[in-house]
Each structure stands twice: as C-alpha cells, then as structure tokens.
Design a protein around this nucleic acid. Structure first.
Length: 422
RNA sequence: GUGAGCGUAGCUCAGUUGGCAGAGCAUCAGGUUGUGGCCCUGAGGGUCAGGGGUUCGAAUCCCCUCGCUCACCCCA
C-alpha cells in the first residue's frame, strides 16, 4: 500500500484482462476507416508548442492552461499533443500531400495529453481516433465524415448515440452574429452567472451552452445563429442536412452547439451517448476551412472529427457491448517428475511451433497444483509428461472437459492436438 | 483552478459508546502412490494512506499532507 511509485494522476494502466477491448475498438476503427478510403497516419507524440497555439487557438483553455509544454535541451518549446488535427495537417503540408491535388483522406489513433482535473471519462492522457478529409468544401464530404464516425460506433454495437449538428458560419457571417449575441448578453448582463460574464469577453459563443439554469433560460431567448448565416453557409448547411437525411442518418439540430477549438467553420457536430454521466460527448468534429492556410499551406477546405477511446469504451460497457475475450490457452503442459520437467521446454516449444496456444508449468509444484493451474487457464487439453512414458516415447494427453486421457506418441502430440482443436 | 465524498488484506467490504485487526472471494498447501473443477481442513498475506495531536489506550475523535472518486470549468 505504501507504494514507492504510482501512475501519474489522470493516466491509466490497461492490463491484459482489458487490453482486448482496446484492440477490438482499434481494429474496428481501422477496418471502417479503410473501407471509407482513409489511410492511417502516425504523427509524433510531441510537436512544437506553437503549432497548437496557431491551430487550436491561443486563447482556448486547451492551449492557455491545459498543454503539457516543455523546453527541450536545444531550448525549443515543445508540447505533448493535446489533439490530433494539428499534427495531421502539419504532416500533410510537410510531406507535400497537398501538391498531388485533390482530396487527401487520413485517419489516426493516438494518445493525447491535457492537464485537466480527472473525473469520469476525463483523463490527462487519453486516446483519440479521428479522421481528416482535406481538400474539398463539398457538403457531401461533411456527410461522408459524419457517416464514417457513426459507422464506427454502429460497428462497435452502440445504439444509444445521438448526432448533434450545427453550423457556426464562416469569417464572413459569424462576426455579425457575434455582435448580435453580445448585444443580447449585455442587455441581460445582470442576470447571467459570473462565468458567463467572463465568457462575454473571452468567447461569446460559449454563452450558448452554459449549464447554469438561469443562464439557459435567458439564452433560450438569444439570437440563433442560423438566422445570421450568409447565403453560402446557409446553403452548405442545408445540403449537409439533406445528405444526412438521404442516408437515413438522424440528427438533432442544436443551435447552441459550439465547439471549444477556434478553427471550426460552418459544420460542427458532436456525438453524445446516454450512459456516460457528465462527460457525454464521445465524438466531436467539424469543418475547418481556414486552418490549412493558417498553418502556412494554400487555402484548402477540410474537415474532420475525433472520438474518445476511453469514453467509447465506457459507452460500450454501459450498453453491455464489450466483446467476450477468450484468453484461454489451448494446451497446458504438466510434468510428473524430473525427466518430465527437463523435457518440458522442448515439448512446449513444439506445440507452439505447430501454432497452438500453449503454456506450461514453471513453478516446480505438485501435479495436482499444475492441473489446477491448467484448469484456471482454461486449457482444453493438458499434456502430461513423465520419465516412464518418455522412455516409451509417449506422453499423456488429457481432455480437461471430458476428464479422459490416453497415451499418445510424444512426437505426434502437436498434430493430434491440432486436429482435436480443429 | 473551485467544491463535495471516500482511503482497513491482491479484490469487494464489515469493524459497536475509543479496548487484542475481521469476513467473503482470490492465492498457497493438505484431504495416502502420478490427476483439475465441487466439497472439507489449514496457512500465508495489514505501517488500518502518511504525519502530528487528544487519551491509560486511536482503524475509530481532532488537525495537516497525500491519494482516489464525482461534479463545476472545459472537453474526447
């Protein structure tokens, strides 16, 4: 109990009894993303801190107070990546992927780091899977990206998911909405909570999703962004919604949905899950038509999303959709005496070379305890070797389920067991 | 950063008005020659999160620290 070391706050050890759930999820992400034509990218765990300041936004919480930054030995200011998109776009530009013309579709699975106070579904190191589609402003691409995200959840067996959708306009129309919103908020300043008064200065759009009851009541009367979209943004939004409808994807238009990263334009969306507690978003994404240019590339429309691995696993657990994991060994090897003990490594190795999942006793205990161990490991068969049988070139093969056993030529056991296990 | 709840065996948890540190599960060993599960018997395993205080005596009462959990903020 008085441990010398414990894991850093907000991090998790995934032990073998659960790691299969992660592998299952990662496998589904890869399978579905590849079916949609997205290729995997793996970017560094840390980048220049400036990359995130430029993309995510200097004044966002993520950059201003949640980044793990450090100076390397060369005096460069680096940061553990707090989200995935910036790195992907940096790699996209660095390798000239934009020069091929056309659309680039990438996905990733990556750890991310944010200095937060942990709570249910929130960690300091968490993991995200995400996709970015770079190079087209077509509304149909928005639909594809949303379809991809939802397809992953569907393939994981989740059903209690809802898609929230909004458009937050573009640099042309958003400022005028912002003005109207601020005007409204100033008029009700005295009725708003302290956080909201602060938001009026920092990020007025966030006024919309304050959870304080009084604020919610007031902001329900606030101007709605859809009334202020420019013609192009309005048309884009309509086409996205039409595309979703034609795919039979239900969505809830959420005029109060804004997102915490500065780079979003037009379409923003979130996937929420009913079984999660306070942190109920399992996925967030949107269009970021100005970001590639902001990072030094040519003007390039794009969009993407990121889903939380931990939250998705929590959602699967809440719905009872975690897969059954089979970690049982197929064959256990036990020994009776010293000659048996000496022969064990070779017998075990041959079983493994024959492709069987095999394990053996290394503990130097009684046969009884070895069989107990075999039982606990779920072994379907146990090979028992002893001097008497070895002298005849034989081994005992015991069927643990039927409690039956017989002698089999030792060098034929891998073949026999392979056939039995079919 | 703010607030609340909780820290007793590997795990889940009891522990009375302050009076010898407990159970179940798990682990290990036995229950007659070289055979698992069910059952029976036994064993190991504790700085009661850590430190200080009150007291004849503290897991229990008080203070501080640390950790965990949940919520706010924010977000995946």
């Amino acid at each position: 109990m008085a441990l010398l070391f414990r894991r850093p706050k907000g991090t998790e050890d995934v032990l073998p009894d659960r790691v299969g759930y992660w592998q299952f999820l990662e496998g589904k992400v890869r399978e579905v993303a590849s079916r949609f034509g997205y290729g995997e990218v793996r970017t560094p765990t840390f980048e220049e801190a400036e990359l995130f300041a430029r993309s995510v936004g200097e004044d966002t919480d993520i950059v201003s107070k949640e980044m793990y930054t450090f100076e390397d030995r060369g005096g460069r200011l680096m940061a553990l990546k707090p989200e995935g998109t910036a790195s992907v776009l940096r790699a996209y530009l660095e390798h000239g992927l934009h020069k091929g013309g056309g659309l680039t579709k990438l996905y990733y699975i990556s750890p991310i780091f944010r200095y937060e106070k942990p709570q249910a579904g929130r960690y300091r190191q968490s993991h995200q899977f995400g996709a970015e589609a770079i190079g087209s402003g077509e509304p149909s691409l928005d639909v594809e990206v949303i379809d991809l995200a939802l397809s992953i959840y569907r393939e994981l067996g989740l059903s209690e998911v809802s898609l929230l959708l909004n458009s937050i306009g573009c640099p042309k129309c958003r400022p005028s909405y912002r003005q109207e919103l601020l005007k409204f908020a100033r008029a009700h300043r005295e009725e708003l909570c302290g956080d909201c008064r602060r938001r009026m200065e920092t990020n007025p759009l966030r006024l919309l999703d304050c959870k304080v009851e009084g604020c919610g009541r007031i902001m329900a009367q606030a101007p709605v962004i859809s009334q202020y979209l420019c013609d192009e943004c309005r048309e884009h939004f309509e086409e996205v919604k039409g595309g979703l409808r034609s795919l039979g994807i239900p969505y809830r238009e959420e005029s109060k949905l804004v997102r915490g990263l500065d780079y979003y334009t037009r379409t923003v969306f979130e996937v929420v899950h009913g079984g999660l507690g306070a942190q109920n978003a399992i996925c967030g994404g949107g269009r970021y038509d100005g970001l590639v240019e902001e990072l030094g590339g040519p003007p390039t429309p794009a969009l993407g999303f990121a889903g939380g691995v931990e939250r998705t696993l929590l959602a699967m657990e809440a719905e009872g959709k975690l897969p059954e994991l089979d970690e049982r060994v197929e064959v256990f090897v036990a020994y009776l005496d010293d000659p048996g003990r000496e022969a064990l490594p070779k017998v075990l190795s041959e079983l493994r070379r024959a492709g069987l999942r095999a394990d053996g006793s290394y503990t130097g205990r009684s046969l009884k305890s070895q069989l107990r161990q075999a039982d606990r490991m779920g072994a379907r068969y146990t090979v028992i070797i002893g001097g008497e049988e070895l002298a005849k070139g034989m081994a005992i093969v015991r069927d643990m389920e039927l409690s039956e056993q017989r002698e089999v030529p030792l060098d034929g056991t891998p073949k026999v067991l392979r056939e039995k296990l079919g």
